[in-house]
Simulated assay, not measured.
Amino acid sequence: MAQVSSTAKIKRLPSPNRVAVLFAIVCYIAGCTTLGPASVQRDRTDYGGALATTWKEQTLLNIVKLRYGDAPVYLEVSSVISSSAMESQVSLGATWFSGWPNDGNSQALGAYGRYTDRPTISYTPLSGERFSRYLLRPLSPAAVFSLVQAGYPIDRVLQLTTRAVNGVYNRSASPFRARAADPRFYQMLEALRRVQRSEALGIRINQPGDKENTLIIVNRGVPDAVSNDSRTVREILNLRPEATELALTFGMVQRNDTEVALLTRSMSEIFVELAATAEVPPTHLQEGRANPAPAEPASDTPWDQPLVRIHSSATRPADAYAAVPYRGYWFWIDDKDMRSKSEFLFILVLFSLAETGVTPQAPVITVPAN
């Protein structure tokens, strides 16, 4: 809240100048008494930017905490209500004197203004059943392939969100289930990506309540290279060569040769995978404060590189996409690392998709109308 009060005396100014000064001050104060449209433009941009920045920082901090075995905390901003008010008052007075000893004249000007800004921001901690839905429940296969249908690269989506497809396992850097990828998992991802680019892969989402969704692979009217990739995927996943419609389900292994069983990760698993490759200060590793880094893969391929490169430094980075302080150090993502930035943004989208069922109601807030 800001309060301004001023009183000034203007002596012996020519009459036209006095009028101009008083008119300018009155117009300035009158112009400041309305906030409406200008406040929408200012507040919406500022609050939106602050929410986006803190969302990134909270996610990054929780990933880093997992590397240290610390408990992550998720706090949602459920509502933002901004209430602003401005009032002003202007008083003018003039006195003329004639004759000695009061030869001359004087004028008095007074102005008073007050601005009040009382934002109401509600926070909702993620706990209980909502915590289970967001973090512990595996992503649904339909949600994963809906992202693919929306245009996200299928290879990046499956590498991040799945542990296995029809028993063909992905690499894991988690200290709890560290393992190398099956030899043909990355070959399958590359072939699926080429099939996706040819528009020969689709998905049909069934009505709510149905247990299975359908993947559609088009074999006719596509180039020979795409047909070869389709055959490669079918061989790796043990699928019937002539089948064009495949059932999409959740599971470790398939029940028959027309089913794609996706063993998906939960958001908690995804965060643990990212935390395992985060860079931490060597002293913290030597002192046993953080989990050790995963073993180097046997073959150095681009697929085995960290999905999101998280750096650490003793000082705050000058050019960071997101940076958070923790245990006396700064952990950050380089703003020039587009691969890490795109993967991190994808994680934020996945975090929104993890919410299922009825959305809990936000708290009711009563705002006084002056």
Results as ranks from 00 to 15, higher is better:
160 L>M: 14
75 L>Q: 08
75 L>A: 12
186 Y>I: 10
99 G>N: 03
89 Q>W: 14
93 G>Q: 05
98 S>K: 02
173 A>M: 06
180 A>Q: 14
110 G>N: 10
70 D>W: 11
119 P>Y: 04
113 G>T: 07
171 R>F: 15
114 R>I: 14
98 S>V: 14
101 P>N: 04
97 F>P: 08
155 D>W: 02
142 A>T: 10
123 Y>Q: 01
183 P>A: 07
162 T>K: 02
71 A>M: 12
68 Y>I: 05
129 E>Y: 10
69 G>Q: 02
89 Q>D: 11
107 Q>G: 12
197 R>T: 12
62 N>D: 13
108 A>H: 08
155 D>E: 06
110 G>R: 09
193 R>A: 14
60 L>A: 05
108 A>F: 14
61 L>F: 05
159 Q>D: 15
94 A>P: 01
119 P>H: 02
75 L>S: 07
125 P>N: 03
93 G>M: 02
152 Y>E: 12
149 Q>E: 14
148 V>R: 00
177 R>A: 15
192 L>T: 02
120 T>Y: 08
170 N>G: 04
92 L>H: 13
61 L>K: 03
81 I>C: 06
135 L>A: 10
142 A>P: 05
74 Y>N: 05
85 A>W: 09
195 V>S: 03
196 Q>R: 03
81 I>G: 04
94 A>G: 12
66 L>N: 01
110 G>A: 13
61 L>M: 08
188 M>L: 15
183 P>S: 09
106 S>G: 10
128 G>H: 05
151 G>V: 13
72 P>M: 02
186 Y>G: 01
133 R>Y: 15
153 P>A: 09
100 W>K: 04
67 R>K: 13
123 Y>S: 03
97 F>Y: 10
158 L>V: 09
141 P>D: 07
